[in-house]
Design a protein around this nucleic acid. Structure first.
Length: 350
DNA sequence: CCTGAATCTTAGCTGTTCAA
DNA sequence: TTGAACAGCTAAGATTCAGG
């Protein structure tokens, strides 16, 4: 039998057997288990060139999974259960890729699993499809780096502003200058913190609440400037700095140990840094003690965007230490990890 | 039990950085 | 200057929960 006939044979057997994509098939089932080569052949034959429209990511992914079901002779399930892999019976996952950055979340690459990688051309068409074993895919992982992120949730938006911790952490609260009119005009926000000019969390709160209601144009599409930059600038000015540089380091305003977040959706992305982490930061200061992640103050602005205008609606200010007392951490998986595989540009053509 | 809202977990694109 | 590596982000699918 040639590959064409074998492929048709498997698909017909699956159709007749009425099994679902969740029913287990043994690797040595000669009627139902589709070997890798045939799997790739069938999918290319049935899906190559298929027009799917310009859909949002998740919808596109779902539509493609439905097409995969039909191509292989399975009924389309009403929803795709969150199993690992997504197609347990045939032991494969699908990845639809317009870009070359293939990402796998919260799991290792499984050596024996098949990875169905589907090329997307100009957002609207299916291109070539490659089926790799996990052990082959793993070869594209050059560094083994897992990118992690912490996430929390902004819930019960009620008050326009909330000072979540009314005093700073014990480690640093004796170093604040309690005089609220410290002149920061001669300092830069990226300078190291100093006792003379270090504001208390409460006085930062008092200065920043005046920003609530402020609007600015959403320059997100602009090359250089973005929403975060605009907020950063507003904060620097309202604290009394004349300059508003940002060197991209943590925390945003090193001089005040202040990290700034602009939220327009309820998911707070904390990136690699866990706010209540007690490890020490490499920041020089004249306090005589090292500052820790959890000593950093977090200013979280909630904003609405309408017609290209960003309006700051709420302010939350907390020490890192108390952060999770107000913003519940996603508990399902406290840390989310992903591995990113850069696919070479000739991936689909080889 | 059913339905809609809330919550959680991604899908994968895009921006940034840094080394060659 | 370029591209690989990695960090960040939006928002939608799946699941769970609350109210009827």
């Amino acid at each position: 039998m040639d590959i064409e006939a074998k492929s048709a044979f498997y698909v017909e057997n699956i159709r007749k057997s009425k099994i679902s994509i969740y029913d287990n098939i043994s690797y040595d089932d000669s009627k139902l288990w589709i070997p890798r080569e045939e799997l790739e052949y069938i999918l290319n034959k049935k899906l190559y060139g298929l027009s799917i429209g310009d859909l949002p990511l998740r919808t596109r992914s779902k539509v493609i999974k439905e097409s995969v079901c039909r191509a292989l002779g399975y009924d389309v399930p009403s929803s795709f259960t969150k199993t690992q892999p997504r197609f347990p019976g045939q032991d494969f996952d699908t990845y639809s890729q317009k870009s070359n950055n293939l990402q796998i979340w919260n799991e290792e690459i499984s050596p024996s699993r098949r990875y169905v990688i589907i090329q997307i051309i100009d957002n609207t068409r299916i291109g070539r499809i490659k089926v790799l074993l996990g052990e082959e895919l793993a070869a594209y992982d050059k560094t083994g780096t897992l990118t992690t992120k912490y996430q929390a949730r902004l819930t019960s938006v009620k008050d326009k502003s909330e000072l979540i911790s009314s005093v700073d952490t014990e480690r640093i609260n004796t170093f604040v200058n309690s005089f609220p009119y410290v002149n920061l005009g001669e300092l830069r926000p990226v300078d190291n913190p100093s006792k003379k000019s270090f504001l208390s969390i409460r006085s930062i709160f008092d200065k920043l609440t005046s920003l609530i209601g402020t609007s600015f144009a959403d320059l997100g599409f602009d090359q250089e400037r973005n929403r975060g930059f605009e907020l950063h600038k507003l904060i620097c000015l309202s604290l009394g700095y004349k300059s508003y540089e940002d060197n991209g380091q943590f925390p945003d305003l090193k001089n005040q140990l202040l990290e700034v977040k602009l939220q327009t959706s309820p998911t707070i992305d904390l990136g690699l840094i866990c706010p209540d982490d007690t490890s020490e930061l490499d920041i020089k200061n004249d306090f005589g003690v090292k500052v820790r992640h959890c000593d950093v103050r977090y200013a979280l602005f909630y904003a609405s965007i309408r017609d290209g205008i960003v309006t700051l609606t709420n302010l939350y200010l907390s020490s890192g230490e108390k952060f999770f007392s107000r913003f519940p951490r996603f508990e399902g998986k406290i840390v989310n990890k992903k591995i990113q595989l850069p696919l070479p540009s000739n991936f689909f053509s080889s």
